[in-house]
Amino acid sequence: MSSSYVRRRLIQLVPSFFLVIVLTFVIINLAPGDPSAALAGEFASPEYVVEIRKLYGFDRPVHERLLIYIGNMLTGNLGRSYFYGVPATQVVIERIPATLLLVFPSIVLSIVIGLPLGIFAARKRPSRTTAAIVFQAYILFSIPIFVFGLLLMIIFAVYLAILPSGGMISQFYATGLERAADVLRHLVLPMLTLALIWGVPQFVRLTYSAIVEVSKEEFITTARAIGLDEGAVFRRHAFRNAMLPVATIAGIWISSAITGAVFTETVFSWPGIGSLLFDSILLRDYTVIMFIFILTAISVIIVSLITDIIYARLDPRIRLR
């Protein structure tokens, strides 16, 4: 596979990152009133406001501000979170593992449930089963994730009281296996929420429509004409081609997964970036919010790049560009 493709895409990263950074800059400066006061937030002390003003250069003219800002970005200096007293970047980075612990298993669960369901629905069409599956997907997709999460919590944690209602651990002094089990118990509801509302409907609909579209192609008829049975036609031809479009929207998918995680964490008080975001909103800790945005935006861009490269490996039509 051509490495020039990879190189080109990597180079394209730069303007994308730049764009994200400029975007945040614009937003900060659009805040009505004194930007440093706005950024510092309602509850900040005067000293903090001064600190922010100096760091971001709000006492300087705009063009200088942009340069200072970019400089700060590059050195990873967004200022301190006034609430935690340590650099905003540090506060955020500490919470990343918890979010990953939530997101990855959810993605896996979504694929494990969604993909086969989508395939099943596609192969059984037209039938009531297919219609039922697709309709379910629609409904799940339409329920707001936080509503579903709250409902699960109300049913399982409040009324039935069989699962914990929030947080990541209940037994503070447990270690090893016990600790793992504790975390797992706390993980169940948030993971189910994220997977069922964000992941499963996405994959079901995606897989379903991809297979339906591919089945209309002529090479599927050729495959049948050769004498392959339906199963083989599907496995060897329909499926491989159907998976290609799935990979192309991976970028958007990841982005919405992160958004879903934000709400889920908030509802279940799961100590990841999402709930940090929520808390920061309440506390008006804007430097933290800013960094979360920049971090997630950049992560999504990178992940989408990786999936593009993987896609290019899979689709022979792209490989030799």
């Binding site: 937003i27 706005a38 970028g251 919405s256 958004t259 008006r284 919010i289 999504v300 861009i301």
Partner: peptide, 14 residues
């Protein structure tokens, strides 16, 4: 691809 909700949170907050 950027997560719009988070962007909007930033906007709404500021």
């Amino acid at each position: 691809i950027i997560p719009r909700v988070i962007l909007l949170i930033l906007v709404a907050a500021l």
